[in-house]
Write a protein that binds this DNA or RNA. Structure first.
Lengths: 157, 157
DNA sequence: TATTGTTATACTCTATAACTATA
DNA sequence: TATAGTTATAGAGTATAACAATA
């Protein structure tokens, strides 16, 4: 007889399912040759076109240096462009290109498919209830709507 | 006027909250000088004492090489020990030490605190309902109870 | 002197492949 | 020849620090 293994709580279920959902999304969005961070950045740019990189970094909660690398990757593929601000030449306003805007629509489609697949076990009423409960917890924990916490690393303890 | 940003679905909420929960747990469990993967391994060993490293790797869905490094770290701290099997000297049976067993109890306490904190916004009925819905989805998606999907990496598409 | 953006560098985590010992 | 475990190595992703341009 040895000590019992402590049972997992609801938080673990949430973590487990959240990681699974993230992996499944990464796999799906990979078909568009995008990574999840790139996808989130595209959304952030679409939501606030012309933002400076500093502003985007603040919004996503990530170091500016990481944002530079992400924007580089998207710019090379012609999805976004940097436009220098003549009034303050330090600033680079980031905009979606037409290709970026088109790809955003594809992202929306992939996200809906992902959603349907993941929650296939729940009927519409259950889905609504789940969403409600998750939103309540997310609000209580101060999570910014639409911003993935993976852009920042928490300090140890 | 530009193209609208596609709305996030319930799956995103799940991913967002799951990542948040994982970060919060990592922070808490860090107070015991443990990482989440180490914690999961301790639980797996407690659940099947004397397993070979190969068996543990299979159960967690991780490459054996990663398991070696994890066991190394726990063994150096005196939390687990490898016992050579005399009948087949290739096998290393992994067991918790007394210190490991004691730490497991602390892990259980920390996990309960984490659970309570994370779901503070929900009343008992809501918590039960959330757990039920999450469990239903997890079962449908084929997630092994108590095993975090983060031990394995999914192939791209 | 302060701020935006960039580059250089190092660190952590994980995976792949090669190797050792036992069978 | 096959299996358990290990070591060596390399890659991806991210962070910290130093730097350049502009204000």
């Amino acid at each position: 007889m040895h000590a019992p293994v402590p049972p997992v709580g609801s938080a673990f279920l949430l973590t487990q399912l959240g990681t699974h959902a993230a992996q499944a999304f990464a796999q799906r969005i990979g078909e568009l040759d995008l990574t999840p961070p790139q996808t989130g950045l595209l959304r952030a740019i679409a939501g606030a076109p012309g933002s400076s990189q500093q502003a985007l970094a603040d919004r996503l909660g990530t170091p500016a240096t990481r944002l530079v690398a992400l924007v580089d990757g998207l710019e090379e593929r012609g999805l976004v462009e940097r436009r220098r601000n003549p009034a303050d030449r330090r600033l680079h306003a980031v905009h979606l290109t037409d290709a970026g805007t088109a790809l955003l629509a594809d992202i929306g489609r992939v996200a809906r498919e992902h959603d349907d697949d993941l929650l296939a076990a729940l009927d519409p009423g259950e889905r609504a209830r789940l969403r409600e409960l998750l939103a309540k917890v997310a609000a209580d924990r101060g999570l910014a709507p639409g911003v993935h916490p993976g852009y920042r690393t928490l300090p140890p303890a």
